[in-house]
Amino acid sequence: MRLLSILRSIEHMQALKDAGVDGIVLGVEGFSYRSPLYDLEQIKEVVDRAKSLGVSTYLHCNRMLDEEEIIPALTLIQTIDALGVDGILFQDLAYVTLCEQAKANLVRIYAPEAILTSSPEVRTMLENGVDHVMVAKELTLDEVLKIAGENPKKVGVFGFGHLPMSVSRRPLVKNYLDEIKKDRSLADGFGLRLQEEKRAFLYPILEEDKETTIFQDRLFCVLPELTKLQANDVAFVLADDVFVEEGMLTAFIHSAHNRMAQREDDFMERYAHVVTSGYFYKKTNLTKEGN
């Protein structure tokens, strides 16, 4: 089972490699959101350095493409393939067609964050132009293990970070600030939190150029379940550090690497108070009537 991590900066690569990362994921200007953005020159530098360290490189092409972005996306695919990027994680099914048109050697990882919720669905995608998938974040552990077991070494999971709950193509915060006549610049950056008026949770909200994402308040962390995931042929675990305190991401990778090698570590003792198992033990199939 491989450990993948979002690369927050080029300088961070060595630390991640030392911690045991197998692959790094970076955003690219114009085609990614919720990820650190790199231009093509920087991507080349990252790829070259990653190859020297024995680490794979993936681009997080997670934006849904507008029609006028199709040709630029095709150009991007051709360019990054030539640069030696190993693969892409994508949400928009356009990338299946674009990779085929470009005859790209990129590993295609379909990661729509929801939608992939059953073994037949995963199998359907794997048989139709996709090399790997990331299953939906709202699956229970049993569901993940079943799907992964029935599609060995093809299924990845989100393994560390704040789970994104929703993404909008509207500038939700700026629109609200306009309504209450406050400065739009208050929408910028990582300092925003939402609190539903009857609940205590503080949900991070990130407004970018074209997307607004709302995240769960707690940190999702698969460390307690890591060996089960590994035993059921999960292909990879992805870690992200958006809204995460500095150092925790590297600590997670280090801990995950230890656990897979069956070495002891104290990550969960140190961070148990801020991490959660997400939906692993929590089904979300209630109806309005509570059934």
């Binding site: 849904m64 493409l65 507008d66 029609e67 972005e69 199709i70 996306a73 928009d92 099914l93 356009a94 990338y95 299946v96 067609t97 674009l98 132009g129």
Partner: peptide, 8 residues
């Protein structure tokens, strides 16, 4: 949201 996805 685009014709390439529709093609897929």
């Amino acid at each position: 949201t685009n014709s390439a996805a529709i093609e897929t």
